[in-house]
């Protein structure tokens, strides 16, 4: 199956129309963040503080790249395990975040929050950071620079390959795999 090309930020109708198992290529900008950045955003929202970045309509890519070599935009930049961010994601999604990109299982609360907020969880292939870096045309730090590789970056993707893991109607690619549902493609 030819992957579907999607522009970022995702418009709500496109996001709502995606289904678990869809292969896509993402072009446009995303935010990055992982353990520490997501925890900070979560605490700031709880405390009613203004956020350093606008979350509404955006995707967060769970990544902490390796250092860029001289002349390179970014080092290796594959996804980290999403489940570690479980405690924070329902709150971030309620702020209008459209979804996130990572790998691995989510807990039921986050999957429900995706349905409730019409969000989407994309999977990128873990351990292919060299290849995925080729699809990143720009990366600059926009918040929490002291977190170094874990700082929030804006990244500009060009045809970044991903697959829909969890969709806004409760579809779940990992569950399908465990139940022996083979993708039709």
């Amino acid at each position: 199956m030819t992957p579907r090309e999607l522009s970022l930020p995702l418009d709500p109708a496109t996001a709502a129309g995606l289904r678990a198992g869809d292969e896509v290529e993402l072009t446009g900008t995303v935010l990055t963040g992982r353990d520490q950045a997501c925890a900070r955003l979560f605490r700031m929202i709880g405390a009613g503080e203004p956020l350093p970045v606008e979350l509404a309509g955006q995707l967060i890519y769970f990544v902490g790249p390796s250092p860029a070599k001289p002349g390179a935009v970014v080092g290796s930049a594959g996804p980290t395990t999403s489940g570690r961010m479980n405690p924070f994601m329902p709150t971030l999604l309620a702020q209008g975040l459209r979804g996130f990109i990572g790998k691995g299982y989510l807990n039921p609360e986050v999957k429900e929050a995706l349905v409730r907020n019409q969000g989407v969880y994309f999977g990128a292939i873990g351990g292919t950071g060299a290849l995925l870096a080729l699809c990143i045309e720009e990366a600059r730090v926009v918040a929490f620079p002291e977190l170094l590789s874990e700082a929030i970056h804006v990244m500009r993707f060009r045809r970044f390959p991903a697959v829909v893991l969890n969709d806004s109607v409760g579809g779940d690619l990992y569950n399908n795999a465990l139940r022996g549902h083979v993708p039709t493609s």
Partner: peptide, 19 residues
Amino acid sequence: RIIRNADLAAERSLPMCQD
């Protein structure tokens, strides 16, 4: 893609994974 990533990492002396 996993195999292509390994080839690319070796050719360009890049870490195959950011971790």
